[in-house]
Amino acid sequence: MADLGHDGGLMAAKLIGATAGAWVSLVYMLPQGRREAASRFLTGLSCGLIFGGPAGLWLEARLDLVGQLSPLEVTLTGSAAASLSAWWVLGALGRIASRYGAKPGEG
């Protein structure tokens, strides 16, 4: 298992990966306005920074790449994946809630 301590290089990799993932999520599905764009970008950035390390380790194990990647590569990839996935998961949950939740004025 990679050692993901409090190394400045790892934090930079998290920040770069999270930023890249957030930007890519904006490109895939264009936001309707500035407020939505800012919300999506900050959500992706936060999730990438928080879950980047564990997501990278999970991806490394699932793809059978243990020991083949440096800790920086694992962190960068995990942060980008977590950041990119954050808005898609929240969007899916929002659609499910709007489809099956109570409509305004009901209930």
Rank of each mutant, 00 (worst) to 15 (best):
A102E: 14
D3K: 01
V24A: 11
G44S: 05
W87S: 14
W23T: 09
Q68V: 08
E106L: 01
V27S: 05
G52Y: 04
L93F: 10
S70C: 05
L65G: 08
L76S: 05
L26P: 03
G8W: 15
A92R: 08
R95N: 11
R40Q: 14
G78H: 08
G21Y: 05
G67W: 02
I50G: 05
E106T: 06
S83I: 13
A38H: 05
V66W: 10
P104T: 06
G56R: 00
L76Y: 13
R95D: 11
W58G: 02
S83K: 04
W58V: 15
K14H: 15
G33A: 06
A22N: 02
V66E: 15
D7G: 04
S25M: 06
S39C: 02
E73K: 00
W87P: 00
T75L: 02
I50C: 13
A37G: 12
M11P: 01
G91L: 12
G21C: 05
S39E: 09
V27I: 15
L30M: 09
S85L: 15
G53L: 01
V74H: 05
R95K: 13
R40M: 13
G105C: 05
A22V: 04
S98L: 14
S83M: 10
A80G: 08
L63Y: 09
F41V: 02
F41D: 02
G101K: 02
I16P: 01
R40S: 13
L45K: 02
V27W: 12
D7R: 04
E73M: 00
R99Q: 11
G53R: 00
M29C: 03
T43G: 01
G17N: 07
F51H: 10
G105H: 01
D7C: 00
L57F: 04
L84S: 08
A12H: 09
S70Y: 05
V27K: 14
L90G: 01
L76V: 04
D7H: 10
A22Q: 03
T75F: 03
A92H: 06
A55E: 10
L57P: 01
T77F: 09
I16W: 04
D7L: 03
L69E: 14
P71A: 00
A37P: 09
W58L: 15
D3M: 01
G9S: 11
A37Y: 09
S39W: 12
V74Y: 13
L90V: 11
L76I: 03
K103A: 15
G91R: 12
H6T: 02
A18P: 09
L76T: 06
L10Y: 02
Y28C: 09
G48V: 14
L4M: 11
G67M: 06
R95F: 03
A22D: 05
L59N: 03
P31R: 01
M11Y: 15
L45Y: 14
L30Q: 15
G17K: 02
A61I: 06
A2S: 14
L30H: 15
G9L: 11
R35F: 13
E73D: 11
G56L: 05
L42N: 03
P54S: 13
L45N: 02
A18Q: 04
G94Q: 07
G8F: 14
G56P: 09
A13N: 03
W88I: 07
